[in-house]
Design a protein around this nucleic acid. Sequence first.
DNA 1: TATTTTAAATGTAAGATATACACTTCTATT
DNA 2: AATAGAAGTGTATATCTTACATTTAAAATA
Lengths: 234, 234
Amino acid sequence: MTHIYSSQPKHYLAVDCIIFGYDIAEKELKLLLIKRSFEPALGQWSVAGGFVQQDESLDDAACRVLCTLTGLSDLYMEQLYTYGEVNRDPGARVISTAYFALIGIHELDPEIQKKNSAHWRSISNLPDLIFDHRQMVDKALRELVQKVKVYPVGFELLPEKFTLVQLQNLYEAIYLRPVDKRNFRKKILSMELLDKQDEKERETSKKGAWYYRFNVEKYRELARNGFFFNLAVS
Amino acid sequence: MTHIYSSQPKHYLAVDCIIFGYDIAEKELKLLLIKRSFEPALGQWSVAGGFVQQDESLDDAACRVLCTLTGLSDLYMEQLYTYGEVNRDPGARVISTAYFALIGIHELDPEIQKKNSAHWRSISNLPDLIFDHRQMVDKALRELVQKVKVYPVGFELLPEKFTLVQLQNLYEAIYLRPVDKRNFRKKILSMELLDKQDEKERETSKKGAWYYRFNVEKYRELARNGFFFNLAVS
DNA sequence: TATTTTAAATGTAAGATATACACTTCTATT
DNA sequence: AATAGAAGTGTATATCTTACATTTAAAATA
């Protein structure tokens, strides 16, 4: 079969992963950044990226990059936007599809981290990034803010067991403003999506705070019946 | 300068435009579809597409496709999603970035339409589409529903002057359900974004309905001060 | 063992927003 | 002058959102 495709130009295609983590102790949202090990822009900071191969889908490529960097699979990841300005990469014309991922910061093996020259950096204090990566990060942040309001994705950034205080701190770190404690708890508990454990977190207070778990099955069931998650609080 | 890019594979890159129009008379949302004039899938229905060239950005390519097809420029358009499954196009591996556009259905020149074998089809009665185009359309529709709730993009589908009944019909066509007349009018008018004209539309009723115009400047001003558009009505 | 300290946990009232709902007005046509 | 058909209008109720301060639990210390 012959057709008109063969007269068309071909392009380098990359994926870039904006990887968010949440530091419970510092109550800060962080980004996993890489010190680039090749030209152009060797030695500068970037998000994790890689080229799309012939035999892999975009999603596969993004997963590969994420897995290679973190050693983890089954992470939350979502396509964000495709950046296609002609001169966005000074090395060559490369179109890049950005993804954003959410991971529990403490799940990451420090060895793999070191091997990939990957570093967690607070979003309130980011270094200069190469190319249009800062633009990607800003878009991913805006997307995250919108997303956590109406989908229960914040839990991806926390361990399986977490306290309500930790959950609230996470939302405050994403919204970049304080949230009313009683209203927040009222709202999240009224959804009946959190299973209270009979165990307390005892690091940060004498009294201890009850652990909860997010009940995914219950959420799926409710969502199927038209329920809408909403934590767009004061 | 030599670097590792040259060892990487290259890919065909396309853009596809999901073009929405609104038919005031039929009170229906429509899609501009093309009868394909080349292989593969010659003669089948598709959305408007084209290949990305070396010297144009993704956005430029999408604009080019849209302009060529409609003869219009400065249309509302937004990137939707990038489709990158390996075998999505049986002709060759092609990655495609989908855009969606909103246009006033009556702005389109019938001559250009005919020349491009472009046809308006009601979204409630779409033909089979090639490749993953149906998936694109479904995503675009979901996006549109969300978008018109919180951004004043619905006006892009109407003429400059429109009546409140027409606006409500448009929302009903997008939401696919009836909307309470008094609540709808109360809500949109309370935003004070519509300028009442001293002219009436007299086609559809003896009494006639007042024309309004959307005031973009006012919206921009309000939005700058934290105002949020919201027509997520009953 | 009584007291202190620290963070966790809790409820209510007022205000704002969303919803449900039916009649009057206008004007061209007969 | 009467009719017909679509445009235009207001209110009461329910629901959701917001603001806000005290009590509880338990470890540490006196």
